[in-house]
Write a protein that binds this DNA or RNA. Structure first.
Lengths: 230, 230
DNA sequence: TACATATATTACCCAAGGGTAATAAAAAGT
DNA sequence: ACTTTTTATTACCCTTGGGTAATATATGTA
């Protein structure tokens, strides 16, 4: 009977906590459903009724968790951005020369782009967000851009990367990466990790000073990591 | 009096022709205005009333030239696609090894991406088009993809390009190029031609066999062409 | 002048869908 | 068991904006 509620009288917080957790889980379930629908049909064609339907609830129930449709859109973006920023922070705090850092960034970012929340970073239209939220997304983009540029700059400084135009180099790399969010479909020939590993070499091959084996002709080069994505 | 109508009785076709020309010009003016608005605000936020306002006409007048809003969207896409395909045909019929062809493709495609109709190719949501039109755009994308892959294949065959994974190489290059359509804003530091020339070298540097001067550190490398874009 | 053809306007329709009010059902707390 | 709080439902409102019908106005034609 009390097997699943451990010492209920001793900790009145546990129920509260578990309740908050359940709430957060539902909130996230909404976001997962919404982001999929938004990616499939586009933000405007996707209706809140359909989001609710997929969750086996009704539209007004969504308003227990979000203030508006735009709020849902924004929170989807936040989910993706948080993942990216977490990885950036992690990578920047690790040691390694500029080239190594850049390659870790490429690998991490590519893998995220092959996920729904990651793709939402580049497939959603900024104009669909409120003014303040647009500012936030802009700051987020700058944060990502800065991380890549810093790695390149560092690489030039520590001679692991050839001298190059930092801005355009970052644009080219981020462009190729962002585009993953547009073409990657789960279930294709390449896994996110394969793409990530391949791109880490491919997109840095021209600016890397030490020359390493280029991606092999048929398949991705480096051993595939196991972490499942998406 | 008859100064502007040259020999009206001898050629009853001229008035008709000039009338058709005027109509086509108006049609194109609608598209130019629409594509700008769609890019600024997104397809769904942009209203036909606003398109019409900018042209100093009223909404129903638009229906003299287009069947629906979706039709306008599609025709914008067609404008961009035609420009790309024209250049591709031109480049493919020229001679030169695979690398040279690839670089011409990159240069041409980058410049187009920095134009409104070009950007519409990658900024519009395919889901906003009708089923048949979606098929057409898909075929168009394949055509572009094929051109790039063929150039790479040819380059590998004629030894101007290193052996590499053709598909992923094309993805990376086209990704960086398509992204131009997202970040390029006229009036920035770099002109479309500067970007085009720089990317032609930059995006092919790692797979080119003969080594050439990499893009210089500060600015775009090759001499800037004069043709005004956008 | 009369006629025909485009081309434009005004005034309207109406479906879609985001959002809310009132209320019921379920869960938690006491 | 009784109360309170959360969470969900039904029923509805109402703006927005694509699209159309009826009609006027040029523009060219006979």
């Amino acid at each position: 009977m009390d097997t699943r509620t451990p010492a209920p009288e001793s900790s009145p917080w546990l129920p509260f906590e578990s309740r908050r957790r359940a709430r957060d889980e539902k909130r996230e379930a909404v976001l997962r459903t919404a982001v999929q629908l938004f990616l499939e049909q586009g933000y405007h064609r996707a209706t809140l009724n359909e989001v609710a339907d997929r969750l086996n609830i009704t539209k007004p129930a969504l308003y227990n968790y979000f203030r508006s449709k735009e709020d849902i859109l924004f929170e989807c973006w936040v989910m993706g951005q948080e993942r990216v920023e977490d990885r950036i922070t992690e990578i920047e705090s690790a040691d390694g020369n500029g080239l190594a850092t850049l390659r870790m960034l490429v690998r991490a970012y590519a893998a995220i782009m092959a996920s729904d929340f990651g793709a939402s970073l580049v497939r959603f239209n900024v104009a669909d967000l409120s003014e303040p939220n647009q500012k936030i997304t802009l700051a987020g983009k700058r944060r990502i851009d800065r991380a890549f540029r810093n790695a390149i700059k560092q690489g030039i400084a520590d001679h692991s990367i050839k001298s190059c135009d930092v801005k355009l180099t970052a644009f080219a790399i981020l462009g190729a990466l962002n585009w993953v969010g547009h073409w990657y479909k789960p279930g294709g020939e390449l896994s996110p990790d394969q793409i990530a590993d391949d791109f880490a070499i491919r997109l840095t091959a021209d600016i890397a000073k030490q020359l390493d084996k280029k991606p092999s002709e048929k398949k991705a080069a480096k051993p595939v990591r196991k972490r499942p994505s998406r």
